[in-house]
Design a protein around this nucleic acid. Structure first.
Length: 492
RNA sequence: GGCGGCGUAGCCAAGUGGCCUAAGGCGACGGUUUGCAAAACCGUUAUUCCUGGGUUCGAAUCCCAGCGCCGCCUCCA
């Protein structure tokens, strides 16, 4: 079975084929950089990261574009709204571009931690104002837009297909609107392409309509078509952007180009924390940096970035995901189980005897690989794909317990972990630190002293002392394991 | 008010007409192993899928009603 993806445009799973054989262009709506990335970003970008990784696994040459929104958009669609980045700039007493730069770097750091592959192009909206003005001119020339008092609006009445993505019709939207329509608009559903800037607006550019700044749907249209062409294979984003953002992108792009804008629209579902929408007022707003360090009152401990990644992949990208300390804790345990198995496997691989590949194991690996691919082909069912990885863990540990596997057999197992768990899911690292405290030599040395002391006590059958050492280390977060190869330690 | 989604074991979660007397993970319990543990392995942990009707030879899966939860309609991943 070939790869099937759920297309929001048709609300169905469809077989994915790229426009150009062997090559895929994908555009994903990136963050507005006015704060640190949070758990919602993790779900969204891990989800699309796995899509990109899987397309590459299938042999496609993928061009992955993910924008950085560094031109603040309005905090609402009425003229009174504030610019989010300008607001952050005022708060932090920095230039807006300094704010954008700071949080852009923070975002990349966090995404690296989550093991998301960097996009091929991370275009900044502020670097594409010229192209945005060009698109506005085209839309004006074609009669799809009109200027009023230095602002330009898209004339939704001229684009009959408006609403096809989100399944809305314009009459309903007018009836249910919660925002007072701007008096400048011909029609309440019209949206801004270019906004006139008041003199005190920090970020503004000269345009044929005077000083102003781009409307908030424009950048994605412009950057997607600049780097991927008039019709792109895949456009991804969060469900909350389906309307109005993506609907407006379609209208602008298709009205300007007379060509379909996107062939496959993919939407990620949302994140809740402890069952509720994540929001600053609910005190359940958790940034990734807080999760990585455990510095949030809703968390009982720190969580490894890859454990968070694993929790994301444990559910489907189109299902909502509830982050809770209990769910994170469970994902962390599962992640450690896989990591410990792979570490142990690689240790054994170094010392494994030469010999032929075990045919029986080869058959099992082949079956697992098939199940994995079938799951991923079914609209990226990462939950089932992960379960395959756990089955591989069991196969591996059973093999390890038997102790007689050859290097070629263990090598094939490691290869499958690397390809499925590493290349595609991104939860298996290519290299793990040699010892648990690999990044803290002093701790390693201290623990080694205690392990020696305990070993001496055990030799004398003084188990009271031996157990006391182990217990006190455990209380300090260090777990001792006695194995045939000696005593190992790791962080809890 | 309009639109959409969800409700599966103690928890997370896949499955969306027969292969389901329902994957996988976490947790718990029992066994093997261990000085005792840990880790690992083996086994147990939902005859049942929110409730009540209906369609069907057959439903967790389709339809209707009810209850509960969530999201979008304003910036948000």
């Amino acid at each position: 079975m070939a790869l099937q993806l759920h297309n929001s445009l048709t609300r169905r799973k469809e077989e994915f084929t790229p426009l150009e054989k062997g090559r895929v262009g994908i555009y994903v709506c990136g963050p507005t950089v006015y704060g640190h990335a949070h758990l919602g970003h993790a779900k969204s970008y891990v989800g699309f990261d796995v899509l990109v990784r899987y397309l590459r696994y299938l042999g496609y040459h993928v061009t992955y574009v993910q924008n950085i929104t560094d031109v603040g958009h309005l905090t609402d669609d009425a003229d009174a709204g504030e610019d989010k980045i300008a607001k952050a700039a005022a708060r932090e007493r920095k230039h807006p571009m300094a704010v954008a730069e700071f949080y852009t770097r923070s975002f990349f750091e966090d995404m690296d931690q989550l093991n998301c592959v960097r996009p091929d192009i991370s275009p900044r909206a502020s670097g594409h104002v010229i192209e945005q003005i060009e698109l506005v001119r085209t839309l004006l020339d074609k009669g799809h837009a009109y200027e009023v008092n230095g602002s330009v609006y898209f004339d939704v009445a001229t684009f009959k297909e408006y609403g096809k993505l989100s399944g809305r019709n314009t009459e309903e939207m007018v009836a249910g609107a919660r925002v007072e329509p701007s008096p400048d608009k011909r029609n309440p559903v019209d949206f801004a392409l270019w906004k006139k800037a008041e003199p005190n607006h920090i970020m503004q550019w000269p345009s044929p309509w005077g000083m102003g700044y781009p409307g908030w749907h424009l950048e994605c249209s412009v950057m997607a078509m600049k780097y991927l062409g008039k019709t792109i294979d895949i456009h991804g984003g969060g469900l909350e952007n389906q309307f109005p953002h993506h609907e407006c992108e379609i209208a602008q792009s298709e009205a300007a180009n007379n060509a379909p804008f996107v062939r496959f629209w993919l939407h990620n579902n949302m994140v809740t924390v402890d069952g509720q929408k994540m929001g600053k007022s609910l005190n359940n707003f958790i940034t990734l940096k807080q999760a990585f360090t455990g510095s949030h009152e809703r968390l009982t401990r720190y969580y490894e970035p890859l454990a968070i990644r694993q929790l994301v992949l444990n559910s489907h990208y189109r299902s909502p995901l509830d982050f809770s300390d209990a769910a994170l804790y469970a994902a962390n345990s599962g992640y450690q189980r896989i990591a410990e198995t792979v570490k142990d496997l690689r240790k054994r691989l170094k010392a494994a005897p030469e010999g032929p590949m075990d045919e029986d194991v080869a058959g099992q690996l082949e079956a697992l690989k098939t199940r994995f691919e079938e799951a991923m082909n079914d609209d990226l069912n990462t939950s089932v794909a992960l379960s395959v990885l756990f089955d591989l863990v069991r196969v591996t540990n059973t093999l390890a317990a038997a102790g007689s596997a050859t290097g070629s057999t263990l090598g094939a197992v490691d290869d499958l972990f690397t390809r499925l768990g590493g290349d595609v899911l991104g939860v298996v690292k290519s290299e793990y630190a040699e010892t648990a405290g690999g990044n803290d030599e002093a701790v390693g040395k201290l623990v080694a002293i205690l392990i020696d002391q305990r070993a001496a006590a055990r030799k004398n059958k003084d188990f009271t002392t031996a157990d006391a050492v182990r217990k006190r280390l455990d209380e300090a977060g260090i777990v001792l394991e006695d194995t045939p190869q000696g005593t190992q330690w790791r962080w809890k």
